Simulated scan of single mutants.
Amino acid sequence: MAPSYGLAENCTFVSTAWGPNISQAPTSRGLLPCARICSQLELGIEMIVVDPKTCEEVAAGEEGDIWIYSPSNANGYLDNRWLTNEVFLARPKRKGDWENGRFYLRTGDMGDMGVITKGIDKYLYITGRLKDIIRKRDHFVHPHYLETTAFMRCTQSLRAGCAAAFEADITRCNTNVIVVTAELKNFEHDYITAQDEERMKRICENIYVCIEKENGVAVGFVGLVKARCIPKTTSGKL
């Protein structure tokens, strides 16, 4: 098994950083690479990371939207011309791409090329989804980091892979706040005892404190629910 990257819009498989002549690859911020970037255009393929607002390539180590130029890119979405133009006909703001007619696929996946290079090669690291990021003032955070922190600090009380962090517009707070919802382990009954209530308070307080300390963001609300209450897709996504 090897970390790889793919999506339906590129006929499923895009890249991997591993191969017959690669026994190991460098990690970056605890992440394994899913692509080795080297002489891509010789193969008719190019992967770049761009600022989703300016469409300009970002520097190594900076996060951005992953764009792909490849003969494996699909032609578009059936009966949806607007979305096809938006996703499959992207062009970065750099010299030459407008003249050669090269179009890129906007993946909507966030990543960076890493600050680590090995020889002339670069490595691509997937960091999250563009539509899922939580924006806080002058920076953003990926929700899966908050979800992981919540679980790792409460492993005896929460179900693995059953937490969701997101931003919500709370009217009475007159602002957007971060909400963390998590499923409780071994809690199936429909009533709450005084002992349950005290236990839940301790779990919530632990999540508030740990996320602010480890991820640098303040959580506005924590919600604890019974097992199998958070809906998931058939592939296991929350």
Rank of each mutant, 00 (worst) to 15 (best):
C162I: 02
Q24R: 08
I192F: 08
Y125M: 04
W82Q: 14
S157K: 09
Q40M: 11
P26F: 06
E198L: 12
Y125T: 00
E147W: 08
I170C: 12
T155H: 05
E197L: 06
N80Q: 12
E62V: 10
M1K: 04
A25Q: 10
A227M: 11
G96W: 06
D190K: 05
M110H: 00
L238Q: 10
K226N: 14
K118P: 00
Y208W: 10
E183F: 06
D121W: 01
A60C: 11
V180Y: 02
K136C: 14
I230E: 12
P3L: 09
P20V: 01
T16L: 03
G216P: 05
S4K: 02
Y104I: 02
N176R: 13
T155I: 12
I203L: 07
D169T: 04
C38K: 07
G220L: 08
K185N: 09
T181F: 00
A227C: 12
E57S: 14
M113K: 12
F13S: 11
V87P: 03
T16V: 08
E183D: 09
L105M: 11
T171R: 09
G96D: 08
C162H: 15
M1W: 04
V141N: 03
R36C: 09
I134R: 00
S235H: 10
A164L: 15
R29A: 14
V177D: 08
I207D: 08
A8L: 14
I68M: 13
C210H: 09
P20N: 01
I22H: 05
G114I: 01
G101H: 04
V50P: 04
Q40K: 02
Y5T: 01
E86Y: 15
A17K: 00
E99C: 03
K95I: 09
G64W: 03
N80C: 12
L105H: 04
A25Y: 03
K131Y: 09
L78K: 13
M152N: 15
G128Q: 03
Q24P: 00
D190H: 06
Y191D: 09
L43H: 11
C55T: 02
F88P: 10
G6C: 08
K136H: 06
C173H: 05
L124M: 07
N10E: 13
E46L: 08
T117L: 03
I66L: 10
S4W: 06
Q195C: 03
R29Y: 11
L43K: 11
V50A: 14
I203S: 06
I178C: 06
N100I: 07
L7I: 13
P71A: 00
A163W: 00
T155F: 02
D112R: 02
L89E: 14
D97A: 07
L224A: 10
H139G: 10
N174K: 09
K226A: 15
P33V: 01
I66H: 01
I48T: 03
M200V: 01
C154I: 02
P33M: 04
C204W: 00
E62T: 05
V179Y: 04
L83K: 14
C55Q: 11
A8D: 14
R172E: 12
P26C: 08
V115E: 13
G76C: 11
V49N: 01
I120Q: 03
T127Y: 03
Y104G: 04
A164I: 09
V141G: 06
E212N: 13
